[in-house]
């Protein structure tokens, strides 16, 4: 399935809903959108992976890139993911210790910009 990207604002947070497959071919589009958001002033970004059905190392690299970029400008970055196959990917790569992971967008937003 093709990559889909949709942005909405929830309070101080910019929520990027991602769907479909994030891989070596589609990850550059995700990177571009995240950079647009951050360069456009978004400081508290939540990426909702709820409709992602495939995520590989390239996609993970893009997400870490966004996290680091936001840190350097004093922002925050969190992920929403409750699918076991994706959570397993985060555990195996130790990235579950790098990203704040939440089960829902509400939980990510409630954790606040201080997350």
């Amino acid at each position: 399935m093709e990559l889909s990207l949709a942005t909405r604002t929830v309070g101080e947070h910019t929520v990027l809903e991602v769907g479909g497959e994030v891989d070596v071919y589609t990850a550059p589009r995700l990177r571009e959108r995240l950079l647009e958001l951050i360069d456009g002033g978004a400081r508290h970004v939540v990426v909702d992976l709820g409709r992602v059905d495939f995520l590989d190392s390239t996609g993970l690299g893009v997400l870490v890139g966004a996290l680091k970029r936001l840190r350097t400008v004093g922002g925050t970055f969190a992920l929403v993911c409750d699918k076991e196959p994706l959570l397993k990917i985060f555990r195996i790569t130790a990235l579950d210790q790098v990203f704040p992971l939440h089960a829902t967008v509400d939980a990510a937003v409630a954790a606040g910009p201080a997350a």
Binding site: D56, S57, L60, G61, V62, V64, K68, T93, Q97
Partner: peptide
Amino acid sequence: LNADQLANESLDEDDLTTGVGFAL
């Protein structure tokens, strides 16, 4: 890579992707 290396600012995205790909 371990969690500290992954979060290290100096690690570029290509190297990170390679390390994560191998971990997977």
